[in-house]
């Protein structure tokens, strides 16, 4: 498999922590515009994989390429965010002391240098864009609310909103449905499907109903490498998958 035509390409990636192989010869190929779900039991290496893609962790070996040309292992988090990869954490992390509006303004695509932000002036179109995203994530009522007063689900959405407004080409979403009600979970699945229409999205999730609702190609991770890949139906019937994950 070559990196050609991919938006994200991992090949032979390995990462060891104190003798423990968190990621073991992992390979992954994401096409532009694809929505990919990644599942796997605890400790399968999902979060470490995200850390490696976003520059938080350096792999011991292996290639991590973005758009077949950019070596992500050579860049740090801020670089990678500006190259066009956005990430949502498992635990919702928004800027607690800022309002919903300010959180989105902060994430809004634009120049990120110190002097640019010091003399920054919000343009009309940018303000419109923020309002648009607030509508999209359904937080119109709470736009001036401080983020720490939001409910858990609202924080998740705000974070997704920050990801959207950042306008990355590839979105990495870590367990977006964690701690959500069933209704919220389905709303979130719908939201992600919407987003995937003009972005590439990789979703890591535990919740099988949520993965079902996404209705897309699934990769199963186990002990740091890919165990199976295909539609949810295919992988559900894979005997090894049943053994390590679903069966137990």
């Amino acid at each position: 498999m070559s990196a050609e035509g991919s938006i994200l390409y991992l090949s032979g990636v390995t990462k060891t922590f104190d003798g423990f192989k968190a990621i073991n010869n992992l390979s992954l190929y994401i096409e532009p515009g694809e929505l990919r779900a990644i599942i796997g039991p605890n400790g399968a290496g999902k979060s470490t994989m995200m850390d490696i893609i976003t520059g938080k962790t350096r792999p011991d070996e292996g290639d991590v390429l973005f758009k077949n040309s950019i070596d992500l292992t050579k860049h740090d988090e801020a670089d990678i965010a500006n190259i066009g990869i956005g990430r949502k954490f498992q635990k919702p992390t928004v800027i607690e002391s800022l309002s919903v509006w300010e959180n989105l303004e902060l994430a809004l695509a634009g120049k990120r240098s110190v002097l640019d932000t010091l003399f920054y002036k919000l343009s009309k179109s940018q303000a419109d864009r923020v309002d648009e995203v607030i509508d999209l994530i359904g937080l119109q009522q709470r736009r001036n609310e401080t983020a720490k007063n939001l409910s858990h689900g609202q924080k998740q959405w705000l974070e997704i909103g920050m990801l959207i407004i950042q306008d990355p080409e590839l979105l990495l979403v870590d367990e977006p449905a964690a701690g959500m009600t069933d209704f919220e979970t389905m709303q979130t699945a719908k939201l992600l499907k919407n987003i995937s229409e003009d972005h590439s999205v990789v979703v890591v999730e535990h919740d099988m109903d949520f993965v079902k609702a996404l209705d897309t190609r699934v990769t199963v991770l186990h002990e740091g490498s890919v165990l199976a890949e295909g539609s949810l139906e295919t992988v559900s019937n894979d005997e090894r998958v049943i053994e390590v994950y679903l069966g137990r």
């Binding site: 976003t54 938080k56 740090d76 988090e77 801020a78 965010a81 500006n82 956005g86 990430r87 954490f89 992390t93 928004v94 800027i95 607690e96 002391s97 800022l98 300010e102 303004e105 902060l106 994430a107 990120r112 240098s113 110190v114 932000t117 010091l118 003399f119 920054y120 920050m162 950042q166």
Partner: peptide, 30 residues
Amino acid sequence: IVTSKLGRVLISVRDAESRTRFIGYRVEHY
């Protein structure tokens, strides 16, 4: 400084440093 957008980036660094990096701000420069 604190009422500019830079001020809000600073607060963001204070509250959630690594989030700020993932949005694309060079925290160390700030």
